[in-house]
Amino acid sequence: MGTNGNRSQKKLQQDGDGKTVAELELECEGVAIDEVAVQEASLEAELEDLRKQQGEAGDVRFKTRRAYQVIGGDDSAAHAAAAREEALTEMAEAAERYVRVKTPAILLQSALDRYRREKQAISY
């Protein structure tokens, strides 16, 4: 029993912040042990509930992160949007150049056709 007593005393000193048994007894005077036990059980139940909520929140976070990555949740969407805008700008510039070159060509062709028609009309 002496070893159990020594172990208990060492355990008390470790858990009791290095206080002596007498200091711990003095500190515990007037404390309702039953109330402390009920409070401890309540706190343990609350802690268990919080751990469960933390686990559920972790699952939601994981699923959300996975969904975010599936839809391209990195900067590739921004790069794609920028590349799209650049391509649209280049296409608009190319269309403008085409109109600037093609319009005079059409007008010239039309003038040539009219000239030929007029010359053929005169020749007959």
Rank of each mutant, 00 (worst) to 15 (best):
93 E>G: 02
9 Q>C: 09
70 V>I: 10
39 Q>M: 11
37 A>I: 11
42 S>V: 09
30 G>A: 02
81 A>Y: 02
104 P>W: 01
10 K>D: 08
84 R>D: 07
83 A>N: 04
100 R>K: 12
109 Q>P: 00
15 D>C: 10
64 T>D: 06
30 G>S: 04
114 R>I: 09
6 N>L: 09
34 D>G: 09
102 K>T: 07
47 L>D: 11
75 D>I: 00
42 S>C: 07
91 M>I: 12
81 A>F: 06
26 L>Q: 15
40 E>H: 14
118 E>S: 14
90 E>Y: 04
39 Q>H: 07
77 A>Q: 14
118 E>P: 01
15 D>I: 03
31 V>I: 04
85 E>L: 14
120 Q>C: 12
84 R>E: 09
15 D>F: 08
53 Q>E: 14
20 T>F: 02
77 A>K: 12
73 G>R: 01
72 G>C: 12
92 A>S: 08
67 A>E: 02
1 M>K: 12
41 A>E: 10
105 A>E: 14
97 R>T: 00
117 R>Y: 05
40 E>M: 06
61 R>G: 06
46 E>A: 09
5 G>T: 04
28 C>L: 15
30 G>T: 00
122 I>V: 15
44 E>F: 06
3 T>Q: 10
96 E>Q: 15
46 E>W: 00
41 A>P: 01
61 R>W: 06
72 G>Q: 05
31 V>H: 03
77 A>H: 12
85 E>H: 13
53 Q>R: 15
3 T>F: 13
35 E>I: 14
22 A>F: 15
55 G>L: 11
56 E>V: 06
18 G>C: 01
63 K>P: 00
79 H>I: 06
103 T>M: 10
101 V>S: 09
11 K>H: 07
56 E>G: 04
66 R>I: 07
74 D>M: 07
28 C>Q: 03
77 A>M: 11
32 A>Q: 12
72 G>M: 11
116 R>T: 04
76 S>Y: 05
50 L>W: 12
49 D>H: 14
109 Q>W: 07
110 S>Q: 09
28 C>D: 05
13 Q>T: 02
55 G>W: 05
38 V>R: 13
65 R>T: 06
54 Q>H: 13
16 G>T: 01
118 E>V: 11
7 R>I: 14
9 Q>N: 14
103 T>P: 00
74 D>R: 03
87 A>F: 08
2 G>H: 10
92 A>P: 01
84 R>Q: 13
22 A>N: 10
19 K>S: 02
51 R>Q: 06
101 V>Q: 10
93 E>Q: 13
40 E>A: 08
49 D>R: 15
36 V>G: 03
101 V>N: 08
21 V>Y: 02
53 Q>M: 14
29 E>S: 07
42 S>A: 13
11 K>I: 13
86 E>L: 14
80 A>H: 03
31 V>W: 00
105 A>Q: 14
116 R>Y: 03
113 D>H: 07
71 I>Q: 05
35 E>L: 12
21 V>K: 00
